[in-house]
Amino acid sequence: MTVLVLMEHGDASMEALTLARKFGAEMHAVRMDAVQPFAPDAVAALLALVADHLNPSAVLAAGTDRGNDVMARLAARTGLPFAANCVVAEPGDQGSLTRLRWGDSLWEIARLNSPRPIITVAPHTFAIEDGPLPSEVDVTPFLTQLEDKDMLVRVSEHVAAAGGGVLLTEAKVVVSGGRGVGSKEGFAIIEELAGLLGGAVGCSRVVTSAGWRPHTDQVGQTGTKIAPDLYIACGISGATQHMAGCRNAKRILAINSDVEAPIMVNADYAVIGDLKEIVPAISAEIRKHLAVLAESPLPGGERA
């Protein structure tokens, strides 16, 4: 059996490959960067042409932004159904699969009624397994078959990010504030703690909707998804849509006045009480700790 895979750089595509191997021993790949500058309709058109040629039993990609975009275009142009962000999929078996809904808070068990399943694989849900790699399709003969309108939607410019500060997605520690912080000014203590820990500031949607923080700080289903070593949630109730963004944190510390808050089910540690007292107290304690470290000479005479 033949299977066609749309490949990008990064782990998500290796995870997709792990699932793709179930669909066929003969694997072929088209690269996401097969058309430069990136033109999603052109990549979808290439996939459709290659699929007509190789007749694969399924077409798979990683459930990244570009993966989901191009596969939806492929489905639309071929008139086939498309299942995004699958966590389970078996060939045959009447197209039975499991996919993510609501960020990753709910699973849908569904049947894909299609002669050629078009599937993306939810990132971070498959352990990458070693195995055979797909052979890359030589797309040169297909490129000439693209139509002008396939190139209409294309990247015409890239604007680099302003930079500065610790990136939310890369921070090892994220200190996040919710409605409990109370105001824009209230975030001073959150910023202070994040600064002491070399981390980034995050927030809940209530905070961005109120205009206290920019949307780039929002963690969750419609914000940023992060996986830091430590997530400190201050005055955040732990709605499923918020947890969809931070569930993959290694450890979660909840600071909340309500012992019954839903976040307690997902947290590893908790401090109960008013964050306006607790957060500054933690910052003060960290300063004390750092001062002691600076005072005590380490073995070998070096200073920390």
């Binding site: 498309f82 809904r101 607790i278």
Partner: peptide
Amino acid sequence: RLELMRLAVPEGKGKSVQVLGTGP
């Protein structure tokens, strides 16, 4: 053509929270 059969709530990580204390 993508036919919902049923929904399922994924199991949590089965964490149990350790309360480090109350207040400052």
